[in-house]
């Protein structure tokens, strides 16, 4: 097998996406704090309780890890989504509401692997549409989701200041 092919195969083999475990949460919280500059452990405890433990047939909290060193896997990122039904008048669809990849480990396929794994979970759950929402000025996430084939959907997000 050519060296480049071997290297790609080894990289793909080392990348693994699975459901989150309680033991991952310290790393998830640290990654989120590093990326957003806003530590929120209470929020993550709640998210883990709701998305890591309950209604697992329609809620998916997945992590990507690098298992090149199998004795000490490294968390590369996470994705969270759920199947929502009839909200905003929509037929059942999968919503991705969080996706984060370690900035030092980006462009190595972790984001793509997480989104593909989430797509597979949504399909297994019986939905054929995946949605997310991205800030207009969040260039990197927008570029990423677009590169994954996501286009503007039929909804417009509206808001107002509450006086």
């Amino acid at each position: 097998m050519p060296t480049a092919t071997k290297a790609r195969a080894a990289k793909a083999d080392a990348l693994r996406v699975r459901r989150v475990r309680a033991s991952d949460m310290a790393n998830v919280i640290a990654l989120d704090a590093h990326v957003t500059k806003l530590p929120k452990p209470d929020y993550w405890d709640d998210v883990f309780r709701r998305y890591g433990k309950q209604r697992l047939h329609e809620r998916f909290f997945l992590v990507a890890e690098n298992r090149a060193d199998r004795t000490k896997p490294r968390l590369l990122g996470f994705i969270i989504g759920e199947v929502r039904v009839w909200e905003f008048g929509s037929t059942p669809c999968g919503w991705v509401f969080a996706l984060s990849v370690d900035p030092e480990m980006r462009l190595h396929g972790a984001g793509n692997a997480l989104l593909e794994a989430m797509s597979a979970e949504f399909k297994k759950a019986g939905v054929s549409k995946m949605r997310t929402m991205v800030a207009r000025d969040a260039r990197l996430p927008l570029l990423f989701f677009r590169s994954e084939g996501m286009m503007a959907g039929p909804y417009i997000q509206l808001e107002k200041d509450l006086d």
Partner: peptide, 9 residues
């Protein structure tokens, strides 16, 4: 935002 998020690739 739309035009700026779609690369040539």
């Amino acid at each position: 935002a739309t035009l700026g998020s779609i690369t040539i690739a």
